[in-house]
């Protein structure tokens, strides 16, 4: 039984903001299905009482003083952008 359908792959690609062709969808469906099938070996383990690990160090909330400090110059930041105008990032229309 396949773990992920071509339709689901297309849905996931959309969620991930990736445009994929039909051929790519076929390829990724096969490859992701293999990987997910492989990952299902984790179900051999009973983890009902196991705490998940998000982080290996015993860190709690890390706080610092909320003090402004000098960082990058706005003009330099804009110069790295593909498009900008009047000190703001310029993008294609957001609404269709």
């Amino acid at each position: 039984m396949s773990r992920i359908s071509k339709e689901e792959v297309k849905h996931v690609a959309n969620l991930a903001r990736l445009a994929i062709s039909e051929e790519e969808a076929d390829m990724f469906t096969k490859q992701l299905d293999d990987i997910i099938t492989y990952a299902e070996q984790l179900n051999e383990l009973d983890t009902a009482d196991v705490e998940p690990t998000t982080h290996v160090l015993d860190l709690k909330n890390v706080m610092r003083k909320d003090e402004p400090r000098k960082w990058l110059e706005k003009e330099d930041v804009m110069n790295n952008a593909p498009d900008h105008k009047d000190g703001q990032f310029k993008v294609p229309s957001i609404l269709e």
């Binding site: 992920i4 996931v12 991930a16 990736l18 990724f28």
Partner: peptide, 9 residues
């Protein structure tokens, strides 16, 4: 792309 899609899934 493969890993982004696996992670998104």
């Amino acid at each position: 792309k493969r890993r982004i899609m696996l992670g998104t899934f």
